[in-house]
Write a protein that binds this DNA or RNA. Structure first.
Lengths: 105, 105
DNA sequence: TACTTGCGTTAGTGTCAACTGACCTATGGT
DNA sequence: ACCATAGGTCAGTTGACACTAACGCAAGTA
């Protein structure tokens, strides 16, 4: 999950992810969208996204088709939502911090 | 805004941010929460968060009190929400990608 | 079998970021 | 004035990472 956020916090990867959000695209089409970067760089970005499970890969002959993994993206979104809305974790941290202030002052 | 996401995509900084989410804390208290890292490192993290406007700093004598900047965090959240919900941007990218497929095949 | 296309992978490079340790600054107390 | 406390800053190291160029490999095609 941490890897997903890290992968997502990269402008180029966010662009790629957006391209394959609602349609499957072969690597060549994705790479062709970026004229300021080599095909190799895009391939490596795709590997990062795949390792983070943010995209899914499907092989069709010599081609590899990519599409966004909406399930994993939903998980990431839930994670972020939890951060904002607080949840149990932050309550625990707050009580610990309060306790620490007592002890040190 | 890109800086905010990048700053947020760092586990340690997310921890710090959570500590000052609903209460103001002096730098020393924040640093004391991390036993595997020096005060210097925490100070630098706080600088990154401040530069990204994710935390606000207030001076009180020799101390510096930090608290989360909820407004800026809301902006970040909105940015992420827009990414998910689509918005105009993605529609533009989709049409461009479709046009490209036509041209190359 | 040979050639081409589609794509991943590897080595090497430059840059950036997280961290430590030493230092500097400012405020407040004695 | 002196000293302690709170905390930022700078130099230097290490490791991660985005990238290029060259190579490797599988799957069609002639």
């Amino acid at each position: 999950m941490d890897a997903a956020l890290k992968a997502f916090a990269e402008p180029r990867r966010r662009e790629i992810l957006r391209l394959v959000w609602s349609q499957e695209l072969p690597a060549a089409h994705i790479a062709a969208r970026f004229d300021d970067v080599t095909r190799s760089a895009v391939s490596q970005h795709l590997a990062v996204l795949r390792d983070a499970a943010l995209v899914l890969e499907r092989r069709d002959g010599t081609r590899r088709l990519y599409r966004a993994n909406h399930e994993e993206m939903a998980k990431l979104r839930d994670f972020l939502d939890d951060y904002w809305t607080g949840s149990l974790e932050r309550l625990r941290d707050l009580s610990e911090a309060a306790q620490q202030m007592k002890g040190s002052h």
